[in-house]
């Protein structure tokens, strides 16, 4: 009897451990099998939704900070269209969430049968020290494109790469050359949204820059030559009496930046302002004359 109970417990444990393999959909991270210290390499996050249309993803990917550092991300050849939270690093984890407007079911490739997995984003890492570098998911929320935001059941496939200390001078003398970002982000626009257009939402500026090389890391704002402050889009901004010029600076992960400016009209139109000023001057002159007359 005890033998039978042991066998059944092992059976249940076996099923529990392999529960993740039961789902047809999966999210995976692909990295090169080996890289050298000093290399910058890509970790591609792929989503195989098994033909089910999806449109949103919220992902947290863990990595070993002692072996590598996060260097940015690339969006070309990938399909997250708008970032709610663009890839950024915090305490050894990469946080990111975004949407694919219109949803996708898979990648159409005429050279292959059926739909391929959807490349979501390519993360860039720099190898610092030799060792076995593991990439593992601690959160993956994938929502279906069905108008209700239903979560798609799926499994997670982690990845790992071996970082080697290759000091052969002939081997790829400047491996960072291919991925090092030297271009500044693309030009972008700033849009001002009036508060009256929608209830309780204040007036805001919205902006969205793109950078093919290493992705947008952060934005800073400057109003009329004041100090630069960190901001995110959308950013609430109120109209003041006079017009104001706002400059947004988009930085990529390599430190390159691109500026864009917008002038927000003041509450007072310039003609009204001049009229008020003229009236004020006339009033002052009249008061002065009155005082002189009384004397």
């Amino acid at each position: 009897m005890k033998t039978f109970i042991k066998i059944n417990l092992i059976f249940i444990l076996f099923l529990t451990l392999f529960a993740g393999k039961v789902f047809a959909a999966d999210i995976s991270v692909s990295v090169p099998p080996t890289v050298n210290v000093g290399d910058t390499f890509e970790a591609l996050i792929n989503m195989n939704s098994d033909g089910v249309p999806i449109n949103s993803a919220d992902i947290v990917l863990n990595f070993d900070q002692s072996l590598m550092s996060f260097s940015g991300y690339k969006t070309d050849n990938t399909f997250i269209g708008i970032w709610l939270d663009s890839p950024h690093e915090k305490n050894g984890s990469i946080y990111m969430s975004g949407i694919i407007p219109g949803g996708v079911s898979g990648l159409y490739d005429p050279s292959k049968k059926g739909l391929g997995p959807i490349p979501l984003v390519r993360l860039l890492f720099s190898a610092k020290t030799s060792g076995n570098a593991v990439f593992s998911f601690s959160k993956t929320e994938i929502l279906e494109h069905n108008g209700s935001g239903t979560a798609l059941p799926h499994s997670e496939i982690d990845g790992n790469t071996v970082i080697e200390n290759n000091i052969d001078p002939k081997a790829n003398s400047n491996p960072r050359e291919n991925i090092l970002d030297k271009e500044k982000p693309e030009p972008f626009n700033i849009t001002f949204l009036e508060a009256s257009m929608f209830s309780r939402t204040p007036s805001m500026i919205i902006f969205k820059a793109n950078d093919a090389g290493s992705g947008i890391k952060e934005y800073k704002m400057n109003i009329g030559g004041s100090m630069w402050t960190n901001v995110q889009s959308p950013y609430p901004i109120s109209k003041v009496l006079l017009s104001q010029t706002i400059t947004i600076r988009a930085y990529d992960f390599a430190g390159n930046f691109q500026d864009s400016s917008i002038t927000i009209p003041g509450l007072l139109a310039p003609s009204l302002l001049w009229t008020l000023l003229a009236l004020f001057v006339i009033l002052c002159i009249l008061c002065y004359k009155l005082v002189l007359y009384k004397r």
């Binding site: 449109n55 949103s56 929502l143 494109h145 069905n146 209700s148 935001g149």
Partner: peptide, 14 residues
């Protein structure tokens, strides 16, 4: 939350 953005993405017109 993300569900609201997913619903928005469903109705996206651009």
């Amino acid at each position: 939350n993300l569900i609201d953005f997913s619903i928005l993405a469903f109705y996206w017109t651009g």
